[in-house]
Computed example of a mutant assay.
Amino acid sequence: MRRGILLYGPPAAGKDTVTDVLTELGARYVRFARLKIGKGNTKGYRMGTPENLADLEARGDVIYRNERYGNVYVVDRPGLEQAMQGGRTPIVHLGQMAGVEQVTALFPAHWVRVLLWCSRETTALRSPQRGDTDTSARLAAWDATQADLAAHPQAQWELRVDTDTTAPQEAAKKIDAIVRTTSPRS
């Protein structure tokens, strides 16, 4: 059975940090590098071109795409298939409920959905600490994420974590426990 983890939350909620801890817990966990068309931070992304995106779209291989910070971010079928090779469990970062819905609907796997949350004030503090030069855009994204979540009260999560009060190691251990209990016995 293919499986993956969807980490949803606003900017600076700890998606990168929790992912780093999960990958330290075991080789089964891998960060899913979304395809990014644009500029800025390249860490954690597969950089692409508009032509790459057009090719994926023409083949029907775009699972989800969104635009933010002047860039296009893509969850693609070939990327997910590669990330799941050898029984690995990719960790996909999303900031929009539409992405959570699209990935779970269009890419069959057992998806563990995790809501990572932090206060707006925490995003304002963490954003410049992690090197963002566009904290005001991150705060606008925080506002959009809060509105998005409020518009989807029916959303189901296997785990909700407040990263203002929960250490990344504790969050990762809880996620790992859920993945392990939903994994087939070998």
Results as ranks from 00 to 15, higher is better:
Tyr64Gly: 01
Arg31Ser: 07
Leu35Asp: 07
Thr122Tyr: 00
Tyr29Lys: 04
Gly95Pro: 03
Thr145Lys: 03
Glu51Thr: 09
Ser183Glu: 14
Asp76Gly: 11
Pro11Ala: 10
Asp148Pro: 13
Arg77Asp: 11
Lys43Ser: 10
Asp61Ala: 13
Glu101Thr: 13
Ser119Asp: 09
Gly60Glu: 11
Ala177Tyr: 10
Tyr69Met: 09
Thr17Asn: 04
Phe107Thr: 06
Arg3Asp: 06
His110Tyr: 04
Ile5Glu: 05
Ala172Asn: 00
Ala58Lys: 15
Asp134Leu: 13
Phe107Lys: 03
Thr49Gln: 08
Glu170Gln: 15
Asp61Trp: 13
Leu125Ala: 13
Glu121Asp: 15
Arg2Val: 01
Glu170Met: 04
Gly95Ile: 06
Gln129Pro: 00
Lys173His: 14
Asn52Phe: 09
Glu67Asp: 11
Gln82Glu: 15
Arg65Asn: 05
Asp143Ala: 04
Gln146Asn: 08
Leu56Thr: 02
Val161Leu: 08
Val18Asn: 02
Ala141Asp: 14
Pro168Thr: 02
Ala12Val: 05
Glu24Lys: 13
Ile37Val: 15
Arg46Ile: 12
Pro78Glu: 03
Asp55Met: 12
Glu121Gln: 13
Asp148Arg: 00
Ile178Ser: 02
Phe32Ala: 01
Gly40Arg: 11
Ala98Tyr: 00
Val72Ile: 14
Ala33Gln: 10
Ala150Val: 08
Gln156Phe: 06
Arg160Cys: 10
Leu7Phe: 04
Leu116Thr: 02
Leu125His: 07
Ala83Trp: 05
Val100Asn: 02
Lys15Ser: 06
Thr42Arg: 13
Arg88Phe: 04
Leu159Arg: 05
Arg31Ile: 03
Thr135Gln: 11
Leu22Glu: 08
Trp111His: 08
Arg59Gln: 14
Pro108Asn: 03
Gln156Asn: 08
Pro168Trp: 02
Leu149Lys: 01
Arg65Gln: 15
Asp132Tyr: 14
Trp142Lys: 06
Glu24Leu: 11
Asn71His: 07
Asp16Pro: 01
Asn41Thr: 12
Arg130Ser: 09
Arg3Cys: 05
Pro90Asp: 06
Val72Gln: 13
Trp142Met: 05
Glu158Phe: 00
Ala12Ser: 14
Lys15Met: 00
Gly95Leu: 03
Leu53Ser: 10
Thr145Trp: 14
Ala105Thr: 14
Ile175Cys: 02
Val161Cys: 08
Glu67Tyr: 05
Thr182Gln: 15
Lys43Gly: 07
Met1Leu: 09
Arg65Phe: 01
Gly38Leu: 05
Tyr45Cys: 00
Phe32Lys: 01
Arg180Asn: 15
Thr166Met: 12
Gln102Val: 06
Gln82Arg: 15
Lys173Phe: 02
Arg138Leu: 13
Tyr8Leu: 10
Gly26Met: 05
Ala155Val: 08
Leu106Gln: 15
Glu67Lys: 08
Ala58Phe: 11
Arg120Gly: 06
Ala177Leu: 07
